[in-house]
Nucleic acid binder design. Sequence first.
DNA 1: AGTTAAACCTGGTTGC
DNA 2: TGCAACCAGGTTTAAC
Length: 273
Amino acid sequence: MPELPEVEVTRRGLAAPLRGARVLSARLGKPLRRPLGCPAAALVGATVGDIVRRGKYLWLPLSQPDGGLLLHLGMSGSLALLAQAGEPGPHDHFDLVTDRGTLRLNDPRRFGAVVWSASLHEAPAATLLARLGPEPFDPALTPETFHASLHARRTPIKAVLLSGEAIVGAGNIYACEALFQAGIHPALRADRLSRPRAARLLAAVRGTLARALDVGGTTLRNFTDVHGASGAYQAEAAVYGRAGAGCLRCGTLVRRIVQAQRSTYFCPTCQRR
DNA sequence: AGTTAAACCTGGTTGC
DNA sequence: TGCAACCAGGTTTAAC
């Protein structure tokens, strides 16, 4: 599913075309993870503002009626902007028809969400965003503050990265890749990371996310950008999905373990406790 | 309070 | 070939 780079790729594809678009109609398919929270017809007539991203969420502001839609792509979601929208398929669960095209959410597993909120700063949107940690490229996130937040956690560093409390945006692929880049064993307790290693990990998370953004994200099976194009990062993953294959750096066989019910891939030689 | 399982869904792949 | 088991870019909720 979409991690931060994929969501940001999506945002960049939508922002300019949809800015100022007028909502003509909306259609709901099968239920998503949570209900829209308003009748689809209530969106008609609204004007779309500047789409912003927070973590893996997108906020699509609307005016007249004022409010907005908080979108999440879950594990298997993608958004397309269609000039001519055909009949919705079995996994097309939300259409926002505008005078600039139809924004269509396709999500086979339906872990995604489209939620109406009167503003980003009140429920339900604010509630959903409340537990998110700092944005990875926020200059206020320094090696010192990152190290301090890791110091408060006794769980494995991989699980802490996935939780998004210390930094948002890295999901299962990029958490594995960043730990490899930083040479850190995924099972190392977060509070055992030294300051220099925390600094190295922060740089690795930023570098991994930035690189993925540059190449359009990762496409394992579902994800495409708003024009239907796949990402390319999967071709350069060093450890993710490579269990049993040789480490690209040292040749040791990449291992797969399970942490917090998720697969973790790592090189036991390059990544040390 | 802090950590860990279970839950939500569908579909593709693997293995007997 | 058939079918069961397992796996998948995430997050919330319930339970130790």
